[in-house]
Simulated scan of single mutants.
Amino acid sequence: MVGLTTSIGFTTEDEIRVQGYRLADELMGTVDFGSMFYLLVTGRLPGHGEAVLFNAVLVALADHGLTPSALAARLTYTGAPEAVQGAVAAGVLGAGSVFLGVFEDTGRMLRASGQEAAHDETEVRRRAKRIVDEYRAAGKRLPGIGHPIHKNGDPRTARLLELAREHGTVGPYIRLMLAVQEEAAASASVPLPLNAGGMCGAVLCDLGIDTSVLRGVAVVSRAAGVVGHLAEEARAPIGRSLWTLAEDVVEYRPLR
């Protein structure tokens, strides 16, 4: 069929190429997985600072306890330990507006502002206020703002900002996201810190990651954590205990 193309990769009898690079000779043993992932989604290898930030994003969201994704994976593994891939899939299928999908939601919010054309602090503040006002007027929750546990500040956010400043990768989207958080918090009655999902979304926008794959980056990151939970489930299972706990604490109340 004429006209179908791909730049990702191809294989011959003698070599494998990915985005123009010889996989075995130029990439294996030379680039880390984060840089390889960046190459796949952007078509180029990252610079040093970009690689540091991209890898930091992947590390930031890999795991933070018995989250819904970890619970879904463990319980699925309890029922089908012979199909670990099914348990991994169960763990990441719930990526959405509450968990893991914040990357994408934040990116769409920021890029919809046309932030790339803003060159001064006054314009950044104006756009941040417009975003907050529009979301509140529509009764919608601002993506990337607030955290149920880290009410006084997400430690991952602080570290990502520190790294971005250190490596000169603070761009217009990070600046806008920081301004959105300040604008939202200034008129709120409860603490509204910038959470890791929001910061990661802004970082990835400044790194040039396309909006359509932002959630995919979060999913790849969390998949590593899910596999870790499954490795632990295999050697020290808690799935059946979680199932029993649910049966013990959830009261059955018939509708009639």
Rank of each mutant, 00 (worst) to 15 (best):
residue 4 L to H: 10
residue 4 L to V: 15
residue 15 E to V: 11
residue 15 E to Q: 14
residue 20 G to S: 10
residue 35 S to D: 12
residue 39 L to W: 09
residue 50 E to S: 07
residue 56 A to Y: 05
residue 56 A to Q: 08
residue 60 A to M: 02
residue 61 L to C: 01
residue 61 L to W: 00
residue 65 G to R: 03
residue 69 S to Y: 00
residue 69 S to I: 00
residue 75 L to W: 00
residue 83 A to M: 12
residue 87 A to G: 05
residue 89 A to N: 04
residue 92 V to G: 01
residue 98 V to A: 11
residue 99 F to L: 13
residue 101 G to T: 05
residue 112 A to L: 01
residue 120 D to Q: 06
residue 120 D to G: 05
residue 121 E to M: 06
residue 121 E to Y: 03
residue 124 V to A: 07
residue 125 R to Y: 00
residue 128 A to T: 07
residue 129 K to E: 14
residue 130 R to F: 03
residue 133 D to V: 10
residue 136 R to G: 07
residue 142 L to A: 07
residue 143 P to G: 05
residue 145 I to K: 05
residue 146 G to C: 09
residue 146 G to L: 10
residue 148 P to R: 09
residue 148 P to W: 06
residue 149 I to H: 08
residue 151 K to R: 15
residue 154 D to V: 09
residue 155 P to N: 10
residue 158 A to Y: 01
residue 161 L to E: 09
residue 163 L to R: 04
residue 164 A to K: 01
residue 169 T to K: 14
residue 169 T to W: 00
residue 169 T to G: 11
residue 170 V to I: 14
residue 174 I to E: 04
residue 176 L to A: 08
residue 176 L to C: 06
residue 177 M to D: 02
residue 182 E to T: 10
residue 184 A to D: 02
residue 185 A to C: 02
residue 189 S to V: 11
residue 189 S to R: 14
residue 196 A to F: 00
residue 200 C to R: 02
residue 211 T to H: 01
residue 214 L to W: 01
residue 218 A to G: 15
residue 222 R to P: 07
residue 223 A to L: 09
residue 225 G to S: 02
residue 235 R to M: 10
residue 240 R to W: 08
residue 241 S to F: 10
residue 245 L to S: 13
residue 246 A to W: 00
residue 255 L to T: 13
